[in-house]
Structures are given as C-alpha cells and as structure tokens.
Simulated scan of single mutants.
Amino acid sequence: MIPSLESITARLRLRHFRLLIAIDEHGSLIKAAESVSISQPGATKALQEIEEAVGSALFLRTNRGLSPNEVGHCIIRYARLIYQDLAHLREEIESILDGHGGRLAVGTIMGAVPLLTDHLTQLLKRQPAMRIELVEDTSAHLLDLLDSGRLEIAICRTSVSPRPEAYITTRIWEEQLAIVANSSHPLTGLNAQLSDLAASTWIVYAADMPMRRYLEQEFQTHGLPFPNELVETTSAFATLSLLQRNPTFVALLSTEVAQVLSRTGMTSNLLVDLPARSEPYYLVHKRDRSLSPAARLLSEQFTALLPPLDRKT
C-alpha cells in the first residue's frame, strides 16, 4: 500500500530530492554522492529512506549503474518541479527585496493572447523588472495549473470545470469569432455559408472546449454534420503554419487573434455570418488563495476598464 501523504511529507527532505536529481543526471550513486557532497554510504542510506517513504523501489540496479523505473521517473520529475519552485521562490523574494515587483505566473487561452499581452505591456511599463511567466493553453489545463499553484491568475472559462465555485471570476471580454483561411482560399472575398465549408479540414480546439462546442452547435443549427477532417491545436502559431501550408484549411478563431494573423498577409477572414457569440473571457483565480501584489496589479488593470456591472466576482 502506498504511504499516506502525511507519512511521505514527514519522511522526505529536500536533500532527498537533490540526490534523486543527481542520480538521474549521473546514472551512478557514487557520482551522484560526489556531486551533492555526501559520502557513498550516506547516499545509499538516503536512497533507502526515499524508497521506504514512497513504498516502492525507484531504480533498476545494473552493472552500468542506476536506471529509474516508472515510479522513479515519476518522483524525479516532481523532484525537479520542487527545485524549480524553490528557484522561483528565491527569485521572487530577491525581486521583492530589490523593489522590482516580484514574479507573476499567468495563463491565457489562445483567443485572449492579444488582450493579455496588451495589459502585460502596460504592467511592465509600471514594473519593468517584474518577472513574468506566460502560459497559453486550454481552459481545462489552465484551471489545473491554477489548482496546483503553477499559475496564480488566468484568462479562461470555468464552465469546463466540475467545480466552478472554487474560483473567483471577473468577466472581462465578450468574444467575437471569425472563420480564417489562407489568403488564396477559393472563398476569399466571397459571401459564403457554413455549408460551403462542411467538407473542409477544420483547425479546432479539442472536444468539450467552449470554442469547439460553439462550432458543433453552429453546424447542428444549420442541419449539417460536423466535419470529420479535423486538426486539434491550441497554438496560434501552429494554426498560422497549417493555414499557410494548406490553402483549403479553415480555422475558427477569436477576431482579435484573426486580426493578428491577418497582419502577416498570409490569412484572411472568410465572409461567413456567425450570428452567435461564444462564452465571454473571465479573469480567474482560486477562491481560497490571496493574490500577490503583482497579480493584484494585473487584476486592477483589467477591472479598471470594465463597466460597473461587470466588476463582479
């Protein structure tokens, strides 16, 4: 049986994680012990303590050294994350003490990238030495990162979460959508219907994401089968590259992202009427955690521009 979390945290120390990383890097307990400045017997004892704490062997012992098994790969990955978090902790403390404003980890869905980067640009003018980590992903993954503490604040949608009440949300933008294609697409510049694109290859979000649900609903409303030829991605760059190389592909994007892509001269918005809007964007953070000064500054920038009725959580 796997030991309880309380048991694991009571028995593991940072020196254990440091040793695991060293073993993974050197493939040898002797070399790992040298790199972290402990004796070989001390390293052997520490590794035994780790394996007892997690209730499993972590390495395959061969004549060539130590090779992590599946559980070993898992714990080494988390050991590196813990050390990375400690490095971020040190950086943030140093930045605060130096008066530079700390560090901010923020996430966004693809459609809100232009909006967020505008606000981050303004924030960096006020706090030029602030360190920012920007993650672009789906709403579902961004919420997972918020839950785990990897992100402090994000622009996404909580409708994909089974626990939307766990978050404080502020509506910040009403998204409008456009169908985007290569500038040489046969329908560029022509009035078209969704039925004209039913046989096209679509670049879309993964199933169950709000943008994907919206597109499926539009096809259903028009009495059309949803396309079978799909490429799923959350990357604006991948979308641009696919559209550039495939003149018959189409993508459903926010108008803000569509405008950014159109500036390259490689894409155009097709003249297809999309009467409905998708879900709004929300500025989201965990209800049970307070925001850092850096995250509060970003939040205040967004809310300062909102109409009074939208300034709700």
Rank of each mutant, 00 (worst) to 15 (best):
306 L>T: 09
26 H>P: 01
141 H>V: 15
216 E>G: 08
179 I>S: 11
169 T>P: 01
246 N>S: 11
306 L>I: 07
150 R>M: 08
155 I>P: 07
126 R>L: 14
193 Q>V: 09
176 Q>A: 06
93 I>D: 05
196 D>Q: 12
300 E>G: 00
140 A>R: 13
184 S>W: 01
39 S>A: 10
230 L>H: 07
313 T>G: 11
287 R>Q: 14
300 E>N: 12
151 L>S: 01
21 I>S: 05
303 T>E: 12
290 S>M: 10
106 V>K: 01
161 S>M: 11
10 A>V: 07
235 S>Q: 03
164 P>T: 02
129 A>S: 14
143 L>D: 08
261 L>V: 04
81 L>G: 06
222 H>F: 14
309 L>F: 12
248 T>M: 12
103 R>A: 11
100 H>E: 14
225 P>V: 12
190 L>W: 10
88 H>N: 11
137 D>L: 06
270 L>E: 05
90 R>K: 13
13 R>D: 15
36 V>Q: 04
52 E>I: 09
220 Q>Y: 10
85 D>R: 08
207 A>K: 09
100 H>S: 03
302 F>M: 03
18 R>W: 00
102 G>L: 03
45 K>M: 12
278 S>E: 00
166 A>R: 15
208 D>Y: 07
255 T>K: 05
198 A>V: 15
173 W>A: 06
138 T>N: 06
261 L>P: 03
245 R>S: 13
238 A>T: 09
123 L>C: 07
194 L>C: 11
273 D>I: 05
76 I>H: 07
58 L>P: 04
300 E>D: 15
77 R>P: 02
100 H>C: 05
88 H>A: 04
221 T>W: 12
61 R>H: 13
147 D>H: 15
288 D>T: 08
233 T>S: 14
67 S>H: 10
251 A>Y: 04
130 M>G: 00
288 D>Q: 09
299 S>E: 02
148 S>Y: 06
139 S>D: 11
137 D>P: 00
95 S>W: 02
85 D>K: 08
282 Y>M: 12
287 R>W: 10
307 P>N: 06
244 Q>M: 12
95 S>N: 10
151 L>R: 05
212 R>W: 06
87 A>T: 09
130 M>L: 10
141 H>E: 14
214 Y>I: 10
251 A>V: 13
152 E>V: 06
181 A>D: 07
284 V>M: 03
274 L>C: 07
59 F>G: 02
